[in-house]
């Protein structure tokens, strides 16, 4: 039951939020955890759109034997990130935002994995587990 959304405009970011919320409710994440996950998804989907020049978001249920959760993969073929440490610094931005997208999103999820190469794009995978 993987769901995939191509992100090419503002409207798609809204669709990502709604999809993530629906699935988060389905696996019974607590209200606060739902809110954290949807907020993180919103930040990362916007990054995919603004910095990656568009890409795709794939949302799927996850399970590690003991707990259920949600896994989201954000992928783009954009310019990639040259300096990851810098990109994760609170307040650092190249896009005129608040510079909280990456670092903030990482604090809102349980697992955060990023693969990026200059000129090849960025793939970010996040997971949130039920308590």
């Amino acid at each position: 039951m993987n769901e995939r959304i191509e992100v090419t405009s503002d409207r798609d970011v809204v669709r990502v939020r709604q999809l993530v919320r629906t699935l988060a409710v389905a696996v019974k994440l607590s209200l606060v955890d739902q809110t954290k996950l949807v907020t993180a998804a919103s930040e990362l989907a916007r990054n995919t759109l603004v910095y990656g020049g568009g890409g795709s978001v794939e949302v799927s249920p996850a399970e590690n034997g003991r707990r259920k959760g949600i896994r989201i993969v954000f992928a783009d073929n954009g310019p990639g990130i040259a300096d990851l440490d810098l990109a994760f610094t609170d307040g650092y931005t190249t896009g005129g935002g608040l510079g909280l997208g990456l670092s903030g999103a990482r604090r809102l999820v349980d697992e955060f994995d990023i693969v990026t190469a200059v000129g090849e794009g960025t793939t970010i995978t996040v997971t949130k587990w039920c308590r």
Partner: peptide, 14 residues
Amino acid sequence: MRPAVAITLVELGL
């Protein structure tokens, strides 16, 4: 502002 939103904003660092 809803409590869950406020808690999330604090965690986000906003």
